[in-house]
């Protein structure tokens, strides 16, 4: 046996990447993985699923590198992929959101405090139509303006407004039972 024909690189793939010419995956990790992981944990509420989703999202990113590189805002683009992926995972689950909402209502009666707004947005997403879900995350979580959302989704401003109104209408209907005293803003107030 000889070892003339190969050079061993310690560290497996990590070693490969660190030794690589571009270090692309490492750069993606450093710049975007934390936000993506945060988004996955927020939407999925399960660490194991979030870790899996994190890797799935970056597989999608690597398979669409030209789009990623052409994106006006890579951060926005990557988070959109993450949101879209997690919303799909959430849709494939049983509708647990009603139970979660009732649990929030029970806890709130004990604590007499307003529910956490981001938690509420997350639970109410499931009550909204598919297209309204992504717009709601971009507006209420990423805090993009309606004009920025329209540009990012290549939709008109009236369409974005319509989707936000749809989300709020569905959210109101969902809250009626669990939190009847909570009033949400009107679509025109946003």
């Amino acid at each position: 046996m000889t070892v003339k024909a190969l050079r061993v690189i310690p560290g497996g793939l990590a070693g490969m990447n660190a030794a690589g010419p571009s270090g692309l995956l490492e750069e993606l990790y450093e710049k975007h993985a934390a936000a993506v992981y945060g988004r996955c944990r927020y939407l999925l509420r399960n660490d194991a699923e979030a870790k899996d989703a994190l890797q799935d999202v970056f597989v999608k990113v690597l398979r669409a590198l030209p789009e990623f590189r052409e994106a006006a805002s890579p951060s926005t683009w990557v988070l959109r992929i993450a949101t879209h992926h997690c919303l799909n995972v959430m849709r494939s689950r049983k509708a647990l959101w009603r139970e979660q909402l009732l649990a929030v209502a029970r806890e709130r009666r004990q604590e007499t405090e307003p529910p956490d707004r981001r938690e509420l947005v997350r639970m109410l997403l499931a009550a909204a139509p598919e297209e309204a879900q992504e717009v709601a995350v971009m507006y209420f979580v990423d805090e993009l303006t309606q004009a920025e959302i329209a540009q990012e989704l290549s939709r008109s401003l009236p369409t974005v407004r319509k989707r936000l109104r749809e989300f709020l209408e569905c959210a109101r209907a969902a809250l009626k039972e669990a939190l009847p005293d909570v009033m949400l803003p009107e679509g025109d107030d946003l």
Binding site: K31, L79, P114, R117, E143, D181
Partner: peptide, 25 residues
């Protein structure tokens, strides 16, 4: 009780803060 679900504020945007940190601005 009126509940504010959030959204962009005057000059405030979580995504803009992220873009600043990522060197995209």
């Amino acid at each position: 009780m009126n509940l504010d679900l959030g959204g962009p504020g005057p000059g405030c945007s979580a995504m803009r803060v992220r873009r600043l940190a990522a060197g995209e601005l």
